[in-house]
Nucleic acid binder design. Structure first.
Lengths: 412, 412
DNA sequence: GTGATTAAATCTAGGTGTTAAATCAACTCC
DNA sequence: GGAGTTGATTTAACACCTAGATTTAATCAC
């Protein structure tokens, strides 16, 4: 009677079986169905060992054994191989974007397939209310996904504040940061304790960077920066494959960019284009027929400027040139100081940034010695942060898989 | 008949014994003499296992067994414990500072004790010549240390150029970088192949940062920046305990700081103070009795300015204030963007920076939201880079120890 | 269909490395 | 010199891996 991987006590710090099981599980993670022979080749272990481990993982609920031996169409001679696969339903992860005005929760299976997504606007900012809203949105998303609380393996939350490794945010100016992150980590840890949830609370721009690196415009780059470009700038750095967090998790807070010539403030693209458009209105150099003049004041914003520029409006194009100059300086400083190969523009405006990017790139080329970092617009649209939270949650599950208990197949 | 750790083939990727031996070795690394009981507590392994591993490591040459059972003075009852210790003479490491004008090599034992140090000025910059000079200096240092080539476990080289993970530098402007690093990595790898040398070629500022983190003003900080402040600025970042290198290893090249208001160029403290002092001379606002006026033009430089300032010279103090403003801006941008807890000033001028530091700190406080990063002057004096190279070499040896073969005691 | 071929599963024996418990050894203290 | 204490050593059992022999489940050739 052999003990399962789960039963191994880890007093010694190192267990061969545990390590080997982790290797097999890790191999299966980014692989579809596979045979023992595949795993043998990948891990270097013997057939007996691999099969024993795989059967163990099946018993624990991580793997399922596929019945159809050589179904995959690829004809093969010899005895049909047993086929295993990571049970994508062995659990779910929850990725939460706890933004300033809107809380979104996405539920995904272990393959990263999104099962459900829920969101709510938040007005009031009291700590209890924010935590309660998060609870509600998570519950809604879980029920939409048809998942139980006990099938949750990890919850990752993105907040518009720096966070330390425990997910706690510093006070910040006027308590903004601690208002945005009123103890999500402690709250969720308590809430998920019974089910063994892993909890991570992380800065939103950092999660956006993780998302871009895994699924978006950062794929293939080992060093890149993700610039969140909404009302304010915020950045997530990934350098040498590592997320760069900083002592308080505040790396990527760009307030100090105000010291860079031609940048001045950390207002984001959306905020600035709106302000500049309003400013342009009061000058008399703009053609009265321009969209910048004809659009009602309340509707004037970044989208209007982008659309006008696409239609060839000279005033709007002038604003984009001005913005390109500013962006190029930001990219030059960040890219130069960190030596990244790519800078990804992420967030709401990323979709309409088409005209801005080449102008920025051209200016960036002038500012830096070659090679300048490549510029790319995010392809992940609105949900970057919640997507990043899901990706991060999956990373955590993957890294800790052997120590976790997935849901039994019967509870699916 | 049990096999030694060295004989274990690593086909499987995981070997319990190898991992446990590594744990024991790692425990011994930053520890003096220790008993089996100590290691048992530290590793969680059984007495039998620990003793077997320790004896194995003795046989391989990593440990020596100390005869005097309870020599350490601390009285204890019971049977005297066997005592082991890492053999600090199991090999040596070489740390090289291959600077632009001077090549230094330091040889140290496994405890980091410096055994010898040699250096040569270099004038000509031909690739062959630079490599030959390095070879000579290394050989000199080794012979001074009484060490043989075969007892070298690792050679780390610092170069004033960015390097990739293989130690190769990009071309750079006018080929400066590739002239500074004319293939040290390949050359040394070939030279040390027979003896199994580990080779690392790394940017000098990065090595300085490693030195400061291990022995200098960066100790205790998980995120800090080391600013090399000689003729030019260069920085090494350590964030979240990791060295931040960047795609081409060029993170820490501060050229782009020229975009920061009030900084303008990347000239270092020494270069700027000299230039400013010369500039002040031509104005007629400076007291003719000031050292800035009386010092011969050729001798005017940073040391003169620092000494004059310490003597209370108003003109010199004005220059320091100007410099403090500039430094504060650099620190604000770097510290703010990376969220570090400390900034260490390293390099030749660090010794005389006493008056400058508090002024810079005061200005930095105004520029940033609290808490501002702490400022510190390096205590490692001239040899930061070679010291950093030694530290880095020891890190590499430690990380790869189980795979290395130390010198037999007989060859000591 | 029958038998050869093939590829994989399964079984078996043996070895390594670990633990746990019993025993032995080397000291100190009184 | 005996009790007490601490650690080394020995022993047996066990966990886990490997290697090789054997079996099984298929295809293919006829």
């Amino acid at each position: 009677m052999s003990r399962g991987v789960a039963d191994i006590d880890d007093r010694t710090g190192f267990s061969q079986k545990r390590a080997n099981a982790a290797a097999v599980l890790d191999y299966a993670w980014d692989r579809g169905a596979f045979t023992a022979s595949d795993a043998i080749e990948a891990t270097g272990l013997t057939r007996s060992t691999v099969i024993a481990l795989a059967d163990d993982l099946v018993e624990r609920g991580w793997f399922c054994e596929l019945p159809n031996a050589r179904a995959a169409g690829e004809y093969r001679k010899g005895r049909p191989a047993r086929r295993y696969e990571l049970r994508s339903t062995a659990g779910v992860v929850v990725g939460v974007d706890a933004g300033q005005h809107c809380v979104t929760a996405a539920v995904a299976d272990l393959r990263g397939r999104e099962l459900a997504r829920a969101h709510t606007e938040v007005d009031e900012d009291s700590a209890e209310q924010r935590l309660a809203v998060a609870d509600t949105v998570i519950a809604k998303a879980l029920s939409d996904a048809g998942a139980l609380e006990q099938s949750v393996l990890c919850v990752a939350v993105g907040v518009p504040a720096p966070t330390d490794l425990d997910g706690v945010s510093p006070e910040g100016e006027q308590g903004f940061w601690s208002r945005m992150n009123p103890g999500f980590a402690a709250h969720l840890r308590e809430r998920g304790e019974a089910h063994g949830w892993l909890i991570e609370v992380e800065n939103d721009a950092n999660l956006a960077a993780i998302a871009e690196g895994a699924l978006g415009a950062g794929v293939g780059a080992s060093s890149y920066i993700t610039l969140m470009t909404g009302e304010r700038f915020g950045a997530g750095y990934v350098v040498d494959g590592h997320l760069v967090r900083g002592t308080r998790g505040a790396a990527g807070e760009l307030r100090l960019l105000s010291l860079v010539e031609g940048v001045g403030s950390t207002h984001g693209i959306a905020a600035l284009l709106r302000a500049w458009a309003l400013e342009a209105r009061t000058s008399d150099t703009v053609d009265p027929a321009s969209a910048l003049m004809t659009t009602p004041k309340a509707d004037l914003g970044a989208p209007v400027v982008f659309r006008a520029a696409e239609a060839g409006d000279p005033a709007a194009l002038a604003l984009l040139d001005r913005m390109a100059e500013r962006l190029a300086r930001i990219c030059a400083v960040l890219g130069g100081l960190l030596d990244v190969e790519r800078i990804v523009f992420s967030g709401a405006v990323a979709d309409s940034i088409g005209l801005l990017l080449p102008r920025t790139a051209a200016r960036l080329d002038e500012l830096t010695h070659p090679p300048a970092p490549g510029l790319a617009a995010s392809t992940l649209h609105g949900g970057v942060v919640s997507t990043g939270a899901v990706v991060r949650a999956l990373q955590l599950v993957r890294a800790n898989a052997i120590a976790l208990d997935p849901v039994a197949p019967s509870l699916e």
